[in-house]
Computed example of a mutant assay.
Amino acid sequence: MVETHPDEPALHVAGVDARLNRLRAGVLGANDGVVSVAGVVLGVVAATDHGGALAAAGVAALVAGALSMGTGEYVSVSTQSDTQRALLAQERRELAETPEQELEELAAIYEAKGLTPELAHRVAVQLTAHDALAAHAEAELGLDPQELTSPWQAAAASTAAFTLGGLLPLLAVLLPPQPARVVVCLAAVVVALVVTGWVSARLGGAPVPRAVARNVGGGLLAVVVTYGIGHLVGAGL
């Protein structure tokens, strides 16, 4: 009666969710780059009109922020990956040592989801025969053993996303002539925040106008505050 393997669609969905989460993380990394670097360079612009100081501060903020993002993502994903691998190793041991108990446990999970006891047992038997570890990992842990995130890939993606996001306000404040720097940089920041807000909303299935307004409002608040602080610090020097 049951001809398909119910684990395959579930694992496919889990894999898609993992890729969407990584994409959302990349968008948020770019967003952080925009806001962080824009805050620094506009704060420096408010304090001094020295082009060398502005360039040095902007590049330092870009490099430090990108490395910080990459390191933080590496540590976070490494911890997550270690935990996932430990859980999968434990599941392998249990499948090797107590296969009948694990089969009953898997059947109970599908029975709790609404299948009859007989059908739940048949599904558990088929899934176990097909790929016992994948079946138990998906049902018990919500994991796909083939879709574990690489810490190095996550770190590289976060570093690249922050760098791309931070380059926009840096170039927008360095390239224009001095009188137009603030206006051009703010305009570039608003455009970037609209784009990242729109993309993150679409990926997360959230209302786009609300997400964009929240993103732009929060980012501009951070930038305006740092600009004001830079102005106060510059006036006191």
Rank of each mutant, 00 (worst) to 15 (best):
R210A: 15
L106D: 01
P145T: 12
A61L: 03
G142D: 09
F162I: 05
V191M: 04
E111I: 02
A38D: 10
A160N: 02
M1P: 11
A187E: 06
G166V: 06
V184G: 02
A60P: 03
A154L: 01
G228E: 10
E3K: 08
A135I: 08
A213P: 01
V194A: 07
G230K: 00
A155C: 06
A187W: 07
E3T: 10
G228P: 10
P99W: 02
G236M: 14
L119E: 08
V59F: 14
R210E: 14
L143Y: 08
A201M: 08
L23W: 13
R22S: 15
P9Y: 06
L95E: 07
G142Q: 07
V190Q: 02
A132W: 03
L127G: 11
H130D: 13
A139N: 00
E94L: 14
L62D: 00
V40G: 03
E105G: 14
H130Y: 10
R24S: 14
A201N: 10
A112V: 02
T159I: 08
E102F: 05
S36G: 04
L106C: 01
E3N: 07
A60I: 05
G70H: 07
A213S: 10
G114V: 11
M69L: 15
A53V: 15
Q90H: 12
A129C: 08
V34R: 01
A108V: 11
V183W: 14
Q126C: 10
T98W: 13
P6D: 09
D144P: 02
A64D: 07
E104P: 00
A108L: 12
L115K: 02
V208P: 11
A155L: 07
G29R: 00
